[in-house]
Structure formats: C-alpha cells, structure tokens
Design a protein around this nucleic acid. Structure first.
Ligand SMILES: [Mn+2]
Ligand SMILES: [Mn+2]
Ligand SMILES: [Mn+2]
Ligand SMILES: [Mn+2]
Lengths: 151, 151
DNA sequence: GTTTTAACATAGCTATTGCTATATTATAGA
DNA sequence: TCTATAATATAGCAATAGCTATGTTAAAAC
C-alpha cells in the first residue's frame, strides 16, 4: 500500500557500493573531457560561422585570459585535435572534427530537449553547457525520441 | 515558410557573444562546486544509513586513494562544512547539513526524472551523478512538475 | 617604409584533484 | 597488557586550469 517504487530512484538509502564507485568513476572521467569538448566545439562553430577561429576569438567567447587559451591550444595540438598557424587561425584535424561533431550534436540534443520541456532559452543554454558532458548515449536516445515524438 | 524556430535551440549559428561568455562562466562556477557537493551528500548519506561516516567509508564509496580523501576532508573542514574526529568519523556542521540537503534533493530530482523518462536505473544513476551539478532552479522546477504530473 | 597596434608567446604564480610511498596511532585481538 | 592491524596523517609528485606581467612579432595604419 505504501510501496510505490515503480521507475523511482531510491529516496535516501545508500546504493550498492560497487555501483556507486562506478558512477563516480565515470563521472570523473566525463569531467576530464569537458574542456576539450567545449574547445573543439567552439572552434568548429567559429569556423562554420566566420570561416576562421583565432585564439583571440576563443578568448572572447570563453571569457578567460589569453594565456589560459594559449596553453589549452598547445595541449589540444599535442593531443592531435588541432593545428595552429599563428595569426592564421586554428584548424581542426580529422580527430578534432570528429570530436567537434559529436560534441555539437550532444549539445544540440540536450539544449533542444530542455527547451522542449518549456525551460527558457537562456536557462537551457546555461544548463546544457554543463549537462551535455554527462549525458550517455542511452539518455541522448531518449531525449531524441522525446523531441521526435512530441506533436 | 521554412522558419520553424518555436522552442528550438539554434542548430549551428553562433549565439550572442555575451550570452555565451555568461554560460561558460556559470558552468565553470558550477564545476568548482561539484566535488564539495558530492562529498557532503555522501557524508550525509553514510550518516543516515550507518550512523557514521569515516574517512575509509568515503574512500570505498568514491573509489579514490585515501590521501585524496584526507586532503579533501581537510578542505571541507577549513571551509566549515564538517568537523573531523579521527577514528570517530566525520560530522556535518549546520552549513554542511544545509548543502547536503540541497545536493541530495537536486540529485534525487534529476535521477528520478531520468528514470521517469524511461532511462534505466543504472544509466540514470551515472548520468545524474554528473548532471545534477548543472541543473538550475528553473530546470529543477520543470523536472519536479514533470514527475508530479505524470499519471 | 616606418610605426603603431593587436595577436600571440612565455614565465611564473596559485588552487584543485588526483597519485604513491611511508609514517603514525587508535582500536581490536590474543 | 601487549601487539597486530586497520585507520589516519603527511610528504612529495604530476596534471589541469586558472591568473598577471611582460616579451615578441605579424599586420595595419600612416
Ligand atoms: Mn558545448
Ligand atoms: Mn559544455
Ligand atoms: Mn550526488
Ligand atoms: Mn555528483
């Protein structure tokens, strides 16, 4: 009579230890890729929109200091996501384009889903910017279905 | 005739610069609180469930090395979230209890919402563990409404 | 063709979050 | 009570992500 546990998350009891460890592990892993994803996604958007992505454009869009971006771009280059040509802009490698495409798609799905739920465009933008990096394939599929099946 | 922009996120055009900067700023800010929130939430859960939260319990639940937890607990103590009594466990301050309650509630809403959408319990757990930290009040309200208004 | 300026590079600092190795100590068992 | 063990503390290292200050240089302006 009081048991209403269909499709419900547990309300306060501790979950199984191994399950929880695995959740935290995966979350730490996703967190480690957040910045890289946002950078390549932004670079791709800048190129799509204006034909080029210079360091200074990224600085303006991210709202961080220029040396912060410079350092990150070095890392992205050494990790094989981009090629830099000073004063000529940043170029994505094949690997970079692939990650950018995936990131952009995930971002778009999450943001559109939040909008479809009735959340304001500004809030959807902000929340999606963080949440996108933690949405699994299974979740993205459900979001996509939701978007497709509303009238 | 081709304009179908109701409740839709833009598909690839760059958003306004100031809007984007603000999104990234807020996201960076949320990210800075992720770990603190997970720690106090976990400590509260351990206390609720077993009466005590020792360092070694947190180590086991998070899946990180013991000195990592020891260092973080020092920070939580110096930030006023907890009191430590070695071999006696971790105790939440009023400030810690407040943050724990808020974090636990957000976590629960996000996880229940994902479950309600039909996402599997395991995936919902994992995704919620990351997404919870980026869900705004507005979004939580919509999630809550969705949970309340489904038959 | 100079000169100014804006873009980029580099040095050096801090804080955060992880790790391994090792020391210390409180509790539990014999 | 003594001792073994498990819990905690500490030292020291690395990677990441931010900052300010300052140097260098390519492009623009004159
Ligand atoms: Mn993004
Ligand atoms: Mn993002
Ligand atoms: Mn949580
Ligand atoms: Mn979490």
């Amino acid at each position: 009579m009081l048991t209403d546990q269909t499709e419900e998350a547990p309300s306060s009891a501790l979950v199984d230890e191994n399950v929880q460890v695995e959740s935290f592990r995966q979350t730490r892993n996703s967190r480690r890729n957040e910045l890289v994803e946002d950078y390549v996604e932004l670079i791709a958007d800048l190129i799509t929109d204006g034909g080029e992505a210079r360091q200074v454009d990224i600085v303006r869009r991210l709202g961080v200091a220029q040396p912060t971006v410079a350092k990150m771009l070095k890392r992205l280059a050494s990790d094989g996501y981009i090629k830099q040509r000073p004063y000529r802009g940043i170029f994505l490698t094949a690997q970079g384009r692939k990650l950018a495409r995936q990131s952009r798609e995930r971002h778009q799905i999450v943001e559109s889903f939040l909008c479809a739920l009735g959340i304001s465009a500004e809030t959807a933008r902000i929340d999606a910017e963080g949440m996108e990096h933690y949405a699994s394939e299974e979740t993205l599929l459900v979001f996509r279905d939701y978007l497709a099946n509303r009238k």
